[in-house]
C-alpha cells in the first residue's frame, strides 16, 4: 500500500494536531442528485492553500460550526490544484446542515488524513473503475488523477451505476468521460430506475460488469459503492474477469472523530480505518473481522 502518510509523519518530526480546521469558503455548490450536493471549497488563507497537498483516496473532516464535523473523502483530483471538492449525501445532522449552505459560506476542513490509492503502482496498467451511487466520489478523484496523466496508463474502463437516472452523480462528467475515445464507459441504472430517454444500460452493477470486456492481465480495479454492490462485484472481478484480490482496491468509511488514530472509533480489529486505510486491498479485507 502507498506510504503517503504514515511513513512521512514517522520519518519527519511528528505533526502537531490541535483540531483547529482550515478556514474554507464555499466557491461553488452543485446539486448532483435530489440528496447529493458537491461543494467546491477554497482556502481563505492563500498560504495554507498553496502548501496544501493530498493524494487520491485521502479524506478529511468537514465541519460547520455549531453542527460539528463529518468525515468524507476528497472527491476532487490532486492534479487539480487550488481547491478541494466533496460530495455530500444528506443523511445526518452535519450533512443536512451542509445542504443548507450557499456559495460564499465558511466551513472548516481538517486533513488530509489516511492512506491513498496507489496511483503510482497503477502506472502502465489497465485500470477499471467500478462505482455505485455516491461511492463514485472517491473513485472520481482517482479517475481524474489518471485521466490528467492519461498517457501513463493502459486501457481505462469506468463502470458506474445508481438506483435511478436521477441518482447518478457527476452527470456532466459522465458525459465528458463517455465522449472520450481513450476511455471505455459503462453506465447503468437499476431495473425500474431508467427514464424514457436513458441510453445507458439497465441492470445492477455486478451484472453489467460481468458482461463487460475487461482484460485479465495487467489490470487493477478501484471499487467503491454500497456494501451489497461490493459483495457481488468482487467475485465478478475475480472469477469472471480473472483479477486477483490484491489488485482490487476499495475504501472503507467507518465513523470517525479524530481522523488520526486516537479517538478509537473506526477500528476494524487492530487496524484503524483512518490510519491503515481508508484504502484497502480486497485481499486485506478478507482477513479482517467483519466490523465495517
Amino acid at each position: 500500500m502507498c506510504t503517503c502518510n504514515t511513513a512521512t509523519a514517522a520519518e519527519d518530526a511528528l505533526m502537531d494536531v490541535d483540531y483547529v480546521p482550515y478556514r474554507m469558503r464555499i466557491d461553488k455548490v452543485t446539486a448532483e442528485t435530489p440528496d447529493v450536493k458537491t461543494f467546491k471549497l477554497v482556502f481563505e488563507n492563500e498560504e495554507q492553500g498553496e502548501a496544501f497537498t493530498f493524494k487520491a483516496g485521502q479524506f478529511g473532516l468537514y465541519s460547520i460550526f455549531g453542527y460539528g464535523e463529518a468525515t468524507f473523502c476528497v472527491a476532487s483530483s490532486p492534479t487539480r490544484k487550488g481547491y478541494i471538492e466533496c460530495s455530500i449525501k444528506c443523511a445526518g445532522r452535519v450533512t443536512q446542515a451542509f445542504h443548507q449552505l450557499n456559495e460564499g459560506d465558511i466551513v472548516g476542513f481538517r486533513g488530509p488524513y489516511g492512506n491513498c490509492f496507489p496511483v503510482e503502482e497503477m502506472k502502465g496498467k489497465n485500470v477499471v473503475f467500478v462505482g455505485g451511487g455516491i461511492g463514485l466520489a472517491p473513485v472520481r478523484s482517482v479517475i481524474w488523477n489518471v485521466l490528467d496523466r492519461r498517457e501513463e496508463f493502459g486501457d481505462i474502463t469506468i463502470c458506474y451505476g445508481a438506483r435511478t437516472v436521477a441518482d447518478l452523480v457527476y452527470k456532466d462528467e459522465l458525459k465528458q468521460w463517455d465522449a472520450r475515445d481513450d476511455v471505455k464507459t459503462i453506465f447503468t441504472v437499476d431495473p425500474g430506475g431508467e427514464t424514457p430517454d436513458w441510453t445507458g444500460q439497465v441492470g445492477f452493477v455486478p451484472t453489467v460488469l460481468g458482461e463487460a470486456d475487461i482484460p485479465a492481465e495487467n489490470t487493477v480495479c478501484v471499487l467503491c459503492g454500497p456494501p451489497i454492490m461490493i459483495k457481488f462485484s468482487l467475485p465478478v472481478l475475480t472469477a469472471t474477469h480473472g483479477l486477483s484480490k490484491e489488485n482490487v482496491f476499495t475504501t472503507l468509511e467507518n465513523r470517525m472523530k479524530c481522523g488520526i488514530g486516537k479517538c478509537g472509533r473506526c477500528n476494524v480489529g487492530n487496524l484503524y480505518v483512518c490510519k491503515d486505510g481508508p484504502v484497502f486491498r480486497c485481499s486485506q479485507l478478507e482477513e479482517l473481522p467483519p466490523e465495517f
Binding site: A9, L14, V17, D18
Partner: peptide
Amino acid sequence: VFNWDYRDK
C-alpha cells in the same frame, strides 16, 4: 496513543 504518528498538542 496521543503521540504515535500525529502528536496531540
